[in-house]
Computed example of a mutant assay.
Amino acid sequence: MSSADFTSIPILEYGLLARDRAAFLSQLRHALIHVGFLYLRGAPVDTTSVIAQIPRVFALPQSSKDALSMRNSEHFLGYTNLGTEFTKGALDMREQFDFATPHQNEWKEGDPEYLRLWGPAQWPSDEELPGFREVVEKFYVDTDVLAHDFTGLVVEALGLSHDALSDFFEPPGHMQHRGKIIKYPEVKEGASNQGVGPHYDSGFLTFLLQASEQRGLQVQNFAGKWIDVPPLADTFVVNIGKGLEALTSGIALATSHRVLSPPPGSGPRYSVPFFQMIAQRVVLGKAAASLTFPPDVLAERDRRGNPTTDSVNYTEYDTTPAGEVALIGRIKSHPDVAERHYPQLFKAIFPQGLPREVSAY
Rank of each mutant, 00 (worst) to 15 (best):
T320E: 05
G224A: 05
R29W: 06
I278S: 09
P112E: 01
H103Y: 14
L32N: 01
V135S: 05
P55T: 07
G110D: 10
W118Y: 01
A279K: 14
L40D: 08
F222D: 10
T308H: 13
A23W: 03
P355L: 10
G250Q: 11
T320M: 13
G195F: 04
V141T: 10
H148T: 09
F275C: 01
D310C: 10
F132S: 07
A288K: 08
L60E: 04
Q280R: 12
L298Y: 00
A211D: 02
S3W: 11
K88E: 05
L28M: 08
V283M: 13
L158A: 09
S290E: 13
S3I: 04
V229I: 09
P307I: 03
E245D: 09
A288Y: 02
S2I: 14
K286C: 03
H75L: 05
P268C: 06
N81E: 12
A100H: 10
L208W: 03
T206V: 12
A121D: 01
Q176F: 09
F236S: 09
E113V: 12
Q194E: 11
Q344I: 10
R94M: 06
F293V: 06
D20L: 06
E245H: 01
G36A: 03
L345Y: 13
Q104F: 08
E300T: 06
A299F: 05
D318I: 07
V136A: 14
D92C: 07
F204W: 13
L208K: 01
S266H: 12
A360T: 00
F139P: 03
F24H: 06
R330V: 00
S161W: 00
R178K: 14
G159V: 10
P295G: 11
A279F: 02
Y184T: 00
D46P: 02
F207V: 05
L68R: 04
F58E: 05
S8F: 12
D336Y: 13
R304F: 11
G243R: 14
Q176K: 13
R340A: 15
N306W: 01
S192W: 06
L91D: 06
Q210F: 02
L60R: 11
P10A: 03
G78Y: 10
S3F: 07
S125I: 04
